[in-house]
């Protein structure tokens, strides 16, 4: 009884949600977004690793290419009614494109509305990992970055040269 009485003076754990919002840490695993690189290009290159890593198979996409050879997803769909917010997709992503953000307010009356397409997922920012640009380190040539112009690359070899 005494203990119960003492609790009356403790700091309250309950907050008045939704008037009052909970403060979530930056690495909290909530809603999934697709981010852009510093040049505002889509970071996702459609490598399918997030889809393969997903334990509930709720990610599907189709990779396609623009005229300059840059890959991006033609469609990117996450079925949040299946998602368990495990974060494996983020872990698998080689380009920091897919990220889980501290937002959980996704409730819907209709389950169909939990199917997010690329337009719902893609944000105009870099998310948690600023500064990373996959195509700047990858060997593939894309529009505006030819062979040998990526970080840590020699200029392309001249096959016809006999010089040592």
């Amino acid at each position: 009884m005494w203990l119960t009485f003492l609790h009356m003076f403790h700091k309250r754990a309950t907050i008045q949600y939704p008037e009052e919002k909970i403060k979530l840490p930056a690495r909290w695993r909530g809603r999934i977004v697709l981010t852009r690189d510093p040049d505002m290009g889509e970071r996702c290159v459609g490598c399918y690793l997030c889809a393969a890593a997903c334990p509930v198979d709720c990610i599907s996409l189709q990779a396609t290419e623009d005229e300059n050879g840059r890959r991006y997803p033609e469609f990117f769909r996450i079925n949040f009614s299946r998602c368990i917010f495990c974060g494996y997709c983020e872990e698998a992503c080689p380009t920091y494109a897919i990220q889980l953000i501290p937002d959980f307010e996704m409730g819907e009356y209709d389950r169909q509305n939990l199917v997010y397409e690329k337009k719902d997922l893609l944000i105009d920012g870099q998310g948690k990992y600023p500064g990373y640009n996959y195509y700047k380190v990858a060997g593939l040539a894309i529009g505006g970055k030819d062979k040998g112009e990526a970080e840590n690359e020699e200029p392309p070899i001249d096959v016809k040269s006999l010089l040592p």
Binding site: C54, V56, D57, C58, S60, R77, R82
Partner: peptide, 11 residues
Amino acid sequence: RYSGRTSMLAN
């Protein structure tokens, strides 16, 4: 490793 079973037709 087949992926996307619960999403490919979700649209």
